[in-house]
Amino acid sequence: MVSSQVEQRYAEDVGPGDEFEETFTLSTDHVQRFLAMPGNRLGSSQNRFNSEDAARRDGLPGPIVPGVLSLDVAYRVIGDFVGVWGKVRSLEVSFRRSVFHNDTLTSKILITDSGEDGERHWFKADVFLENERGERPLQGVADFELPARG
């Protein structure tokens, strides 16, 4: 198990079966910053993403993280994994459960396939976020490329 960070990985160093993970807390501050971004209307009213009362009215125990923000955080972890010279081609996820403010999430990447196409070194990986309760609110697959040491 290798901890993910922004460093350059190379195609020769990664193969099917390898696992990587990173743990972080998705805080209320992260959500508020996301909702406050210019042009983001999700934060323009009291709703399940920013209000305890609105979340309870929707039957939730507390405010939740917008699904796209969970996706973006998963993308960030993969982007860190491929480094400056790698390329994330796609990330496809299913939202299985809600992510709540201040949930501590472990993002896991499991390499499932790899190959070469000309000078391209491509990889496929299963990706999921797991919360401290052992639930997986987001899971999916990523396609990315890594540079060769060459």
């Binding site: 996301f34 971004m37 210019p38 042009g39 983001n40 209307r41 999700l42 699904g67 796209v68 923000l69 996706l71 973006d72 993308y75 960030r76 994330v88 796609s90 990330l91 496809e92 996820v93 299913s94 939202f95 999916g140």
Partner: peptide, 30 residues
């Protein structure tokens, strides 16, 4: 690339769906 998620857009074509009483965002490919 996820910056596109931070800006609210219009809804686009309306499929005039009349089904069920709950709707949720089930998944996404970027």
């Amino acid at each position: 690339p996820g910056i596109v998620h931070s800006i609210s857009m219009g809804n686009g074509p309306d499929a005039k769906i009349r089904f069920g009483n709950a709707a949720f965002h089930a998944g996404e490919k970027m």
